[in-house]
Simulated assay, not measured.
Amino acid sequence: MNLLQDLKDKLNITWNEEETERRLKRILEDAETTLDFKLGAKIDYTKGMERNLLLNYCMYAYNNCTNEFDENYLNEIMQLRQKYEVLNYERKV
């Protein structure tokens, strides 16, 4: 899957413009770093709830309202954080 194209689809961006693509790539990179921190693990964002959360964070970033993201997605953040805490624990045992 191509996360950049998935993001463009989510944002209904149908045009190809270098400046827009550069901005979206930067948003995706920042979103991955931010969500890795929030979730406490290095995550594969190409599928499932992880992909959905990443695309939603990017939507907030694109619209300059990331300050509202945590409150609106706290449940999803906590579910995924717990998932990765369990996976990390299982790897250590």
Rank of each mutant, 00 (worst) to 15 (best):
N2L: 03
N2G: 02
L3D: 00
L4S: 09
Q5E: 12
D6T: 00
L7A: 03
K8E: 09
D9E: 13
K10I: 05
L11D: 00
T14Y: 02
W15S: 01
E17F: 10
E17D: 07
E18Q: 02
E19F: 12
E21Q: 06
R23D: 15
L24N: 03
K25C: 02
R26Y: 12
R26E: 11
L28A: 10
E29P: 04
E29L: 15
A31S: 14
A31F: 05
E32Y: 10
E32D: 05
T33P: 01
T33D: 10
T33Y: 10
T34L: 07
T34A: 02
L35R: 12
F37D: 13
F37H: 12
F37S: 12
K42V: 13
Y45V: 12
M49V: 02
M49G: 06
E50R: 00
N52W: 02
L53A: 07
L53S: 02
L53C: 01
L54R: 09
L54G: 07
L54W: 15
L55P: 04
L55F: 06
N56L: 15
N56V: 14
C58L: 14
A61S: 12
N63H: 14
N64V: 10
C65H: 13
C65T: 11
C65R: 15
N67M: 04
E68C: 06
F69I: 06
M78F: 08
L80V: 08
R81N: 14
K83T: 02
K83I: 00
Y84E: 13
E85V: 05
V86E: 01
L87K: 15
E90N: 06
R91G: 06
V93L: 04
